[in-house]
Design a protein around this nucleic acid. Structure first.
Lengths: 178, 178
DNA sequence: ATTTAATTAGTCATATTTGACTATTCATAG
DNA sequence: CTATGAATAGTCAAATATGACTAATTAAAT
């Protein structure tokens, strides 16, 4: 089980919903905190149903095609509580694909590395601006914290990249004449 | 293709190796930058072989069982170069499981949230100490940067958690009397 | 010399994830 | 009314990822 189950259970705790509704909400509002795909969400819902964490019922409204409506069970409530405490208390391992790339910068000329990192910083600034443009008032504290958390990491990356560039330049000049 | 292919190609650029050697190196030295599992590495190697990025040959040394030795091809060299530039220049989306959990802190009493975040900070400090204990001198610049990059994010998280706790406490008190 | 444990070198069945696809209904423009 | 496109609501085959397993060799202890 991972944080995506926590997300799905949390959404179903707010209200019983069908899969499409859940996926719309995630893709429209939560793309900043998860990259879970639609088919994955359906798979996880089916999995949790098998494990008794949610119930599935069929609803028919007007002429619309049938929909599967999911509701959280009491076992699901208990699982939600456990997962929530777990993900609050336990720092997961973080890894960045950048770090793999950094290990191999020796394979490129220094000038090119600097150019590539400049390009990265440009794109990062765009990401940051997107986050900063997000309206902060209409969300509850937890959601605001989540967005600010990601934003603080993006800003760190930006200033970290600047100092990394300086170290790379310095090492190159000291290596070539020292 | 993702950064794990870059890692495997980069290791094979240094020298041709068999799978076991690659996996040993990753699990002993690179657990900080990737969580790729052994069977996954073998699958990716087979995949890259099919795509002509690496060659596979059988080697027999003494009585030891046969080993598959992988070498990078010129197509692999080209792919490495492309991947390296891509992962240097393109900031990937970062997501933290903590952020999902933060969205739902309203489901717990404030005091418990604070306790859980305190526990998190304790564990985070242990992680940071592990990283700080890592010897810095024996690595090249890129590897040192990779470790320092992760470390800087961990340190940010620590101070961010402190300020998040303060916001949570403040919101609780202003909500209960204002 | 022989059980025991550790290391070496992978394989495979199962579980997970997703891109691509199907199929219905609704809106709206002509 | 009716072709066109968008929204709704999923499904499924194929690709990925991994825990559990096999099987040989070497090292250590008895």
């Amino acid at each position: 089980m991972d944080e995506r189950e926590l997300l799905l259970l949390g959404l179903l705790k707010i209200q019983s919903q069908h899969g499409y509704q859940i996926n719309e909400f995630i893709s429209k509002n939560l793309s900043r905190v998860t990259s879970m795909k639609k088919a994955t969400a359906y798979a996880l819902l089916e999995n949790m149903r098998k494990n008794g964490l949610i119930d599935e019922s069929i609803s028919q409204e007007g002429n619309r095609p049938q929909r599967k409506v999911y509701s959280i069970t009491s076992a699901g409530d208990a699982a939600f509580d456990t997962l929530l405490k777990t993900y609050l208390a336990q720092p997961g391992q973080i890894t960045f694909s950048l770090d793999i790339a950094l290990m191999f910068i020796g394979n490129l000329p220094v000038a090119e590395v600097i150019n590539l990192l400049d390009e990265r910083m440009k794109l990062l600034i765009e990401q940051i601006e997107t986050y900063e443009r997000a309206p902060k008032h209409e969300y509850d504290l937890g959601s605001r914290l989540a967005v600010e958390h990601v934003l603080s990491h993006l800003q760190l990356d930006l200033s970290w990249l600047q100092s990394a560039k300086e170290m790379i330049v310095q090492e190159a000049s000291s290596g070539s004449n020292g």
